Computed example of a mutant assay.
Amino acid sequence: FQYLSYPMGVYMSLLGVPDAFTAAPATLVGFIDMFIPALISTNLPSEFTRFVIGGLSLVQIIYLTEVGSIIVKADVGIDMKRLFIIFLERTVLALPLLVLAAHFILE
């Protein structure tokens, strides 16, 4: 995931997240497992980054366990590829909001 998450590291560094490239794999691995992002973020030195990854992990858990399962069960015609694209879109949209919330709460 280190190489796959490089674009997310660039995006997070543009948003001003400390240790962005170290935390970047946690942004994508949430699609596979809901607990690994939290495990990855425990070793991050920045409280700001841990807050952002923790919040993003919650957004991803809510999407995959609630909305994603309903979409798959409802037979709407969305395959796993499109479900992953929606996951990425939600991740990209949630990051600036979480960075903004982290600035308000932690600083």
Rank of each mutant, 00 (worst) to 15 (best):
I36R: 00
S41E: 04
F31T: 05
G30F: 08
Q2D: 15
F35M: 12
M80Y: 10
I85H: 01
V92N: 13
A94K: 09
G55P: 02
M8R: 02
I70R: 14
V92K: 08
P25A: 12
V76Y: 03
E107C: 01
L83Q: 08
A94F: 05
P37R: 03
L64I: 06
A94V: 13
P37C: 06
K73S: 12
E47P: 06
V52C: 00
V92M: 12
A23F: 11
T27Q: 04
I71E: 02
L15Q: 14
S13P: 10
P96R: 05
S69H: 15
P37L: 06
V72E: 14
L44G: 00
A24G: 14
V59F: 08
E89A: 02
A94Y: 09
M8A: 05
L4A: 07
T42H: 09
I86A: 08
I70W: 14
Q2P: 11
V52A: 04
L56P: 14
V52Y: 03
E89F: 08
L95V: 13
M34H: 07
V76F: 05
D33R: 15
K73L: 08
L93F: 15
V59G: 01
V72R: 15
P37G: 03
V72P: 11
L4S: 06
T42C: 09
P37E: 03
L95H: 14
T49Y: 01
K81M: 12
A94G: 04
V67I: 10
L106D: 03
L88P: 04
V92A: 10
I36L: 05
T91I: 03
L95T: 15
L58K: 11
V17I: 14
P18E: 01
G16E: 10
L28C: 04
T27F: 09
L56Q: 08
V92C: 09
F1D: 12
I36Q: 02
G77L: 06
S5F: 10
D79P: 15
F48E: 00
E107P: 08
L106T: 01
I62G: 13
L100D: 07
Y63P: 02
T65F: 08
F31K: 04
L28Y: 07
L97W: 07
Q2Y: 15
I61H: 03
A74T: 05
I40V: 15
S41F: 07
L14V: 07
V52W: 01
F104C: 01
H103V: 13
M80L: 09
V29L: 03
I40K: 15
D33Y: 14
D19P: 00
A94Q: 10
F104E: 07
P25H: 10
M8Y: 06
L64D: 03
L28R: 01
Q2W: 15
E89G: 03
L56Y: 12
A26Y: 08
Y6D: 10
V59W: 02
L14S: 05
Y11E: 05
F84D: 09
V29T: 11
T27Y: 09
V72Q: 13
L97A: 07
G30H: 09
S46G: 00
L106K: 09
T27A: 09
S46E: 01
D79R: 11
E107I: 06
P7N: 00
A38Q: 11
V67K: 03
A102L: 10
Y11W: 12
E66H: 11
A94E: 07
L39A: 06
G30T: 07
F35C: 09
F35R: 13
F51A: 00
